[in-house]
Write a protein that binds this DNA or RNA. Structure first.
Lengths: 252, 252
DNA sequence: CGCAAGTTTGACGCTGCTCAATCACTGTGG
DNA sequence: CCACAGTGATTGAGCAGCGTCAAACTTGCG
């Protein structure tokens, strides 16, 4: 099996054979988990770290007033909170939006891994920096764009990330197992309003959405409308990136 | 001079004398910088990392349509982006809201430091996790709370953080060098509207704000209104925290 | 004293929310 | 195979929160 975790971390730093082998050892014994299950619950100190091999997850919090806010999505190949053991308790929950395949890694094993392999630790740190940068874009999106642009921006981000893991068809189509309620809770609006916005996106010839599948009809225009710039996702491997990777790989 | 950086990192992990000495060596030769200056600009790959000893900084981005979004504030004792050398370019700018005192550390020196002291690296990683968790709260705030609650929540956060660095008077008063325009760009609203919200907060007997100083008249009620729970800032040192710190300090 | 920056106010309109009903789809049991 | 329930999508009417525009006022500062 192709280890997507290795692929992901190699975008950030150089890894040698020993390190790759250690990561491979981590990824064994995949489980199937049903949609709707929470992998990690807010307020707890989880004993395991999860790597998502297939399916969609999401990070969220429930508010006092009954509302919910979604902070991010986990796509196939993503890993949930490797750093779980660094803070005393989770500040949000992680749930599954679809049936999923996950690998469970005991937190202690994860801790041993980063103690032994400094470069893996550093790569994981960089991964959290990317999450941080993505969260900043979400703040911009919710804070400074109207509902139409905001929705377009989210679709651009998901399209880009799904593409990076090879899950977008040649017709720019991909699975989107989100209800309109979940889209609303992601974008800071109501499900009634997101429904109307989706209609406008369809009428504008920008997307087709139905049966839990999204087609991006006009990626260029969607990005223009929403001011989307994929840089923050760090999915590329520019020459600058490559030199950066080796610079960070200094031996101790 | 009391090294606030050491204090901050010790909340996350145990540090020995050698590590403390290394951090002390970093913090020398403070500069004065004028309000309005940008320490770091979006799109660049900065050569230096900054530690803020006095004054206020802020992280922000400018949008295509002329708007601005603020992502966070840097208070005395905070450090801007130690990890600057881990990504190829900044995804946001860092500016100064008031005259400030800063220490400039060359990025290479920072890199050497973390190469040499794994525990310092880990502490800095944890610091980025706290930033991440704070950003999540900002997403909740902007996405799921109305203008009144949202403003109250921001004031609770700032009050708590200022308290942690000893800058709140016994009368719950502290410097707040923000214009209403900056508050608006933080909270995803217009300056006209924030002005009206501030009036309501004053009328409700919750705050006094003027002359760049904020007084929190009723901290309890302000927190209730806004659903503020300080946990995400990780400013405490609970017993659980202490055992966590030592657990993370395994030698390699 | 006079300018510049920031704050305050008013009138008006639109975006997005609320409430509530209807429609469509899917899986289930009889 | 069909009735039915549950979940999600869609629609409509009415309204409120917040934005826009524009002007007046206040404060700090050279």
């Amino acid at each position: 099996m192709n280890n997507t975790l290795v692929t992901k971390l190699r975008r950030f730093i150089e890894l040698d054979e020993g390190e790759v082998a250690a990561l491979d050892r981590l990824v064994r014994d995949p489980h199937s988990v049903k949609a709707g299950v929470d992998l990690i619950e807010e307020g707890t100190n989880p004993e395991n770290v999860f790597l998502l091999l297939g399916g969609w997850g999401y990070r969220y919090s429930l508010l006092h007033n009954g509302g919910r806010q979604i902070f991010g999505y986990l796509l196939p190949g993503d890993l949930c909170d490797v750093h779980v053991f660094m803070l005393d308790k989770m500040d949000h929950s992680i749930g599954l939006l679809s049936d999923a395949t996950v690998v469970k890694v005991p937190a202690d094993e994860m801790l041993e891994l980063i103690n032994r392999y400094p470069r893996i630790e550093r790569a994981l740190w960089i991964a959290t920096l990317v999450t941080e940068s993505t969260l900043r874009q979400w703040v911009v999106n919710i804070g400074r764009r109207d509902a139409f642009e905001r929705t377009a921006h989210l679709f651009c981000e998901l399209w880009q990330r799904m593409q990076a893991v090879g899950l977008v068809s040649v017709t720019d189509q991909f699975d989107l197992p989100l209800t309109q309620i979940e889209l609303a809770d992601t974008l800071g609006m109501t499900s009634v309003h997101i429904n109307r916005i989706l209609q406008r996106l369809r009428e504008a010839g920008l997307i087709v959405l139905g049966k839990r599948r999204l087609t991006i009809l006009d990626p260029r225009r969607l990005a223009d409308i929403s001011g989307f710039d994929p840089d923050y996702l760090r999915l590329d491997a520019t020459p600058q990136h490559v030199s950066l990777r080796s610079r960070l790989s200094l031996v101790r």
